[in-house]
Computed example of a mutant assay.
Amino acid sequence: MPPIVLVHGIRVSGTMWDPVVSRLTLLGRPATAVDLPGHGSRRGEPFSMEGATTAVAAAIDALGGRALVAGLSLGGYVGIATAERFPGRVAGLVAMGCTARGPSALGAYRFAASLAARNPSLANRISAYGLRRLLPGPVGEAFVAGGLSCEVMPQVVEAVAGHDQLAALAAYPGRVWLVNGTRDPFRANERDFLRVCRNGRLILIPRRGHLGVMAAPGPLVRLLGDLCDQVGAAGAVRSDGAM
């Protein structure tokens, strides 16, 4: 079965995936979480979609050269871009909380990003407080453990705005799972995203919001494990010449 590379959301870091990575490791599934430029251990670096996809590709290569890529929010958008740029490395794509596009979503995020960048230290403190309240206990602590990087948000928003996610999904030949909480406003255009996938499926998680899909690591690990098994089984069939 392929290993799993996990991609974080805006302003946080790969540590947000620690509860998931630890559980996957206990199950014997190789997994790693990458820090994107401008975030976590790479704070202070400029963010670009090219740099972000290169970081994901490097993490895939470190695990053998082919992996299931799963990302949440910004991580999902980066995962889509990685699948487009490096289709041979991405065995399958799990894009979570990243099916919103258009002027309204972009305008709201540009405004929030500009506010955060005016006083990053204050924005980081507010973000840390909000994340701990929204995701109490170890999950929330994992989100803030790698530090927050609100100063990079304007660069991130422009990079996502400048990438055509629908064209990227249409170009990717592998399996795609679009995963959204039913209460996530970022699912607004999920049907458009699903429509362009060559081999896509939409999975809805009841009563969860944008970050709520991370609130229960156990079910998320089971979902990722199942999708990883599906990718592995499909690859084994193709290698046997049956498809």
Rank of each mutant, 00 (worst) to 15 (best):
M214Y: 11
L178P: 01
V156H: 01
A161Q: 14
L166K: 00
L26T: 00
V196Y: 06
T82Y: 06
T53K: 01
V152F: 04
A62H: 10
E45A: 11
G9F: 09
G76C: 10
R11V: 15
S114L: 10
V179N: 05
G28D: 14
L134V: 04
A95V: 10
G76A: 12
I80N: 01
A233M: 09
F86G: 09
Q165N: 05
P87F: 01
A55I: 00
G225K: 01
L27R: 13
M96N: 02
G130S: 07
L194F: 06
S149M: 00
S127F: 11
R191Y: 15
E50H: 13
H39W: 08
G218E: 05
A116C: 02
E84F: 13
D61I: 00
R198F: 01
G65Y: 07
L202D: 12
Q165M: 05
R132S: 14
G14K: 03
L169W: 14
D226A: 07
G28I: 14
L224N: 05
C197W: 13
V179I: 11
T182D: 15
I10N: 04
G65N: 09
V5F: 07
G38S: 08
R222D: 12
R238S: 05
L148W: 03
V179H: 09
M96S: 12
T15R: 12
V7D: 06
R187L: 11
M153Q: 05
E158L: 08
S114Y: 07
G44F: 08
A31F: 06
M243V: 14
L74H: 08
L122W: 14
G212P: 03
E158K: 04
A215V: 10
P103T: 04
L211R: 09
T53F: 02
A170G: 15
L74I: 14
H210C: 08
T99H: 05
A242H: 06
L211G: 12
N199V: 03
Y109R: 12
R208V: 05
Q230V: 13
V213R: 02
G232I: 10
R187N: 10
A170V: 15
P3Q: 02
D18G: 13
P46C: 09
V90H: 08
D18C: 09
R201Q: 12
Q155K: 10
R110I: 06
P154V: 02
G232W: 10
R133D: 10
L169T: 15
P185R: 02
V144I: 15
V5Q: 07
A233Y: 13
P2T: 04
L131C: 04
E84R: 13
A116D: 00
I60N: 01
A123P: 04
A215M: 10
S114W: 09
G212M: 00
R187T: 02
L134N: 02
N124L: 13
P87Y: 03
A167M: 11
T54M: 04
R23C: 09
H163V: 09
R66E: 05
G9I: 08
P173S: 04
R42V: 03
